[in-house]
Amino acid sequence: MCCKQGVLSFIKLGLFGLLLCCVDVFAATWLITYPKPSSESDRSSDYPLKVLTLALEQTGVKYELVPSRKFYTQGKNLIRLKDNREINVVWSMTDKQREQDLLPIRIPLYKGLIGWRLFLIREDMAERFKYIQKLEHLQKLSPIQGSDWPDTKILQSNNFNVITNRDHEELARMLSNAQGDFFPRSMLEIWDEVASFRSSNKVIIQPSLGFYYPTAFYFFVNSKSTPLAHLITTGLEKAIKNGEFEALFLETYHDYIEKSNIQKRKMYLLENTFLPAETPLDRKELWFDAHAD
């Protein structure tokens, strides 16, 4: 009898301890460190941070979002995430290698619009672009891209001679200095970039052309951070279901989509052989539909 009471007391104590542990975990604050923007004027992190905040708010957990101590290039941010050093979430375009190295959260933050590309060009090149009638004509020109961007491999595999540099600001200078012929940028980025362009040679958005390749921009976490991945995924799925994700996307990018006027552009389809097979292309609610009303 005494032995049974001892066992019961031990079990009760264990259950009580487990309950306290669960309460502590629930009450704990998730500290999430993301890549520091390049400068105070760099707004490229604003939308991903809003999406991440929205997802975390859906879960009800306590959290704190903090930038890394220093700015690093995209490539270095991905390396630090892989090595589990300081940074524990990054947003970036996916490819097969990144999904091998890291744990992707397969919900496209920009609904695939990161693959809809318009062209920054020098004004003195505008006349030449008027004579482009097919993809082969465009492939004779040299696009400018970041050396560690997945876009670069996509363009090279589509027979473009890509001019590269690691520094984003240097890419803009290269275009201005005629070190390349055009700078493809997503229709969500290009409008702010052309407005901030400072150059002796005027840079404009080419008005009638573009190209598209299927791709996705995801949140990535360290390959062992499955609890964090589950937390973010749960929040994003809730926001998609209740319409808050779509509302945030349209609030942020509706005007850019309208200005891009892609229905009246000649959009060349490029092949993306680096797109992982697990990309959720069958979930139509996750992708922008260019032909929707």
Rank of each mutant, 00 (worst) to 15 (best):
G6H: 06
V7G: 02
V7W: 08
S9M: 12
C21L: 12
C21N: 09
V25N: 06
A28R: 14
L31K: 12
I32L: 07
P37D: 05
E40Y: 08
S41L: 07
R43K: 14
S44K: 14
S44P: 01
S44L: 14
S45Y: 12
P48K: 09
K50F: 04
A55R: 03
T59W: 03
G60Q: 07
G60P: 01
G60E: 08
G60R: 03
K62G: 09
Y63S: 10
L65Y: 06
S68Y: 01
S68L: 04
R69T: 13
F71N: 15
F71Y: 14
N77E: 08
L78G: 00
R80G: 00
E86M: 05
E86Q: 08
N88S: 05
S92Y: 05
T94C: 00
K96W: 00
L103F: 12
L109A: 06
G115K: 01
R117L: 10
I121A: 02
D124S: 14
M125V: 07
F129W: 11
E136K: 15
K140F: 07
D148R: 03
D151C: 01
T152P: 01
K153G: 03
L155H: 04
S157V: 03
S157G: 09
N161R: 13
V162L: 12
I163L: 12
E169H: 11
E170W: 10
F183E: 03
P184K: 02
M187N: 07
M187F: 09
E189F: 00
I190V: 14
W191D: 14
V194I: 14
A195H: 11
A195Y: 03
F211D: 05
P214V: 03
T215M: 13
Y218N: 02
N222K: 10
I232A: 00
T234H: 10
A239F: 02
I240L: 15
I240G: 03
A247R: 13
L248P: 00
F249E: 07
F249N: 05
E251F: 08
T252W: 03
E258F: 09
Y268T: 04
Y268F: 15
L269M: 13
T279A: 02
P280G: 06
L281Y: 03
D282L: 10
R283N: 11
R283H: 11
R283T: 07
E285F: 06
A290I: 15
H291D: 13
